[in-house]
Simulated assay, not measured.
Amino acid sequence: MTESTTALPRDENLALVIVIYGLYVASLLGFAPAALVGVIMAHVAGGTAGPVAASHYRFQVQTFWIGLAAWTVAAISIFWGTLLSAILIGIPFLIVAIVSVGAIWLWALVRSAAGLVWAAQGSSCHRPDSLFL
């Protein structure tokens, strides 16, 4: 009985892709600078990568920048919600902002986990330019 596997092209090495996903997960678990290291590595390696790895690097870069923008908006919202809570109008705003932080964290975790699974299988990202999977 033979197994059919799809081999990666010789110039494809997904080890760095997997390391970057690991850095993203580490940043979500409390070591935030790991994401910055990961996105720098993805930017640098993306220019010389083969098509499979390039799709992962594009996915990783997009995950970082969209996540950073969303975290920034959420942080500003929490700040203003906290200030405005003194006069009670900020409480609903603050609740929405805190729920948003959890949603952004979950979004980044799901994207990193899905990318890690795809990389471990040796396949490219299905839709690397999509906001969702």
Rank of each mutant, 00 (worst) to 15 (best):
I104E: 00
Q121E: 10
L84W: 11
S85K: 04
C125M: 13
I87G: 11
V101N: 00
G47K: 02
L94C: 03
I98K: 08
A86D: 04
R10P: 15
G30A: 06
A103D: 01
D129H: 12
R10G: 15
G67K: 00
Q60K: 01
I20Y: 00
T82H: 05
I40R: 02
R10E: 14
L109T: 01
L133R: 05
A69L: 14
Q62P: 08
H126L: 13
G38T: 01
T48G: 13
L116V: 08
G67T: 01
V73A: 11
G81T: 04
Y57E: 07
L36I: 12
I104F: 01
A42G: 01
A7R: 07
R58A: 15
V19N: 12
V101F: 06
R58Y: 07
T72G: 13
L83D: 03
E12Y: 07
I78A: 07
G38Q: 01
W80D: 01
L8K: 04
A70R: 02
A119P: 05
W71N: 04
A119N: 05
V39G: 06
A53F: 07
V44N: 06
T82G: 15
Y57A: 12
I20L: 03
A120I: 10
V61W: 00
V61F: 02
A74L: 08
H126I: 14
W65I: 08
P9E: 13
W118V: 07
F79R: 04
V61A: 05
E3H: 11
G50L: 10
S123V: 14
